[in-house]
Amino acid sequence: MAMDIGTEQRHAARRVRHETRRRLLTVKAIEDVTPRMRRITFSADTMEGFESLAPDDHIKLFFAAPEGPQMRDFTPRRFDREAGTLVIDFALHEAGPATSFAAGARIGDPLEIGGPRGSAVVADDFDWYWLIGDETALPAIGRWLEEARPGLPILTAIAIADASERQAIETKADWTTLWSLRSEAGTDDAAAFIALLAGQPLPPGDGFIFIAAETNVARAVRRYLTEERGHLESWMKAAGYWKRGEADAHERIED
């Protein structure tokens, strides 16, 4: 795919650093979006200075544990600075401090957060976007869809446990959604994603692809899209939001 200097400038991403500070939040509302996804709205005395400019930003959540405080990365699903509220979606999966907190959360419970430290803002001038991920990527994908400009072509490919985990998301984008159900496709998310995408031609024009899943899955899908489908690496972002067998693993995938 040819790319001239003007195209590079038009689609340039930007990195924005934020002043980091810790904030003490309080559980304000609890909603089960699906059987395995719990949405918690937090309130704070003030959200002044809180910035989150990209759908895949991350903040640190601090959980109390017998062995000492535990930190986990989460995506700000939605926030309202004036109202002083922040929404975080928790995937209820294997046992851990975040799942334990979300599963047992009660109105009024406190939670400390920090960040985001910065935002990597993807240009909003691509002709189309593909958003690919598992449950851990759904908060970022959902926010991306909600904030998308009207009529923007977006395709999502999302791996979930079963049909009960499908989410309804309000968007003004021209949204095509593909769901891979592990109850039917098996547990190999990489193979499932590739099978879903194999039947989808790359749309005309310039497109950006976002991938977030288990580290090895994200790496395999990225390799498929660059090596077999020919998509530009510079118009793609892949991240391992978790790594099998490791706690609190998050990494940008470059190779």
Rank of each mutant, 00 (worst) to 15 (best):
W175P: 03
I113Q: 04
W235C: 08
A65I: 07
P110V: 06
A105V: 11
S180E: 09
K60F: 06
G84M: 04
A185N: 10
I113V: 13
A213E: 01
V217C: 12
E147T: 14
L131H: 05
T226Y: 03
K243F: 09
R36W: 08
A161P: 00
I59E: 00
F126P: 00
V27R: 05
Y241T: 04
A83P: 04
D89Y: 04
R38S: 05
I141Y: 01
L53Y: 07
A218S: 14
A161K: 13
D45Q: 13
R17N: 10
K28N: 11
A2N: 15
L197S: 03
A95Q: 13
L202E: 10
A239P: 03
T20C: 11
E135R: 11
L232G: 04
T41L: 06
Y224M: 04
M1F: 11
F193A: 01
T99E: 08
H58R: 15
F62P: 01
I209T: 12
A64Q: 14
T171H: 05
Y241S: 01
A161M: 09
W130C: 02
Y224H: 15
R222V: 05
T136H: 02
P139F: 05
P116W: 01
R244Q: 15
E94P: 01
T41I: 11
P116C: 05
L24G: 12
M71H: 00
G151A: 10
A44V: 06
K243G: 08
L181S: 06
T215L: 08
R22K: 15
R252N: 13
E94T: 15
R149V: 13
R10V: 11
L24D: 14
T177E: 14
D124K: 14
G186C: 09
A148D: 02
A148K: 01
E233D: 13
D206V: 14
A44N: 06
W179L: 06
E251G: 07
E94S: 15
G49D: 10
I30E: 00
V221P: 04
I209G: 00
F90E: 00
A137R: 02
A238M: 08
R223W: 06
D73F: 12
R244C: 03
I88H: 02
A137I: 04
L155Y: 01
R149H: 13
R244W: 09
I5L: 15
G245I: 12
A198H: 15
R72L: 07
E51S: 11
K243Y: 11
F42R: 04
G142S: 12
L181W: 07
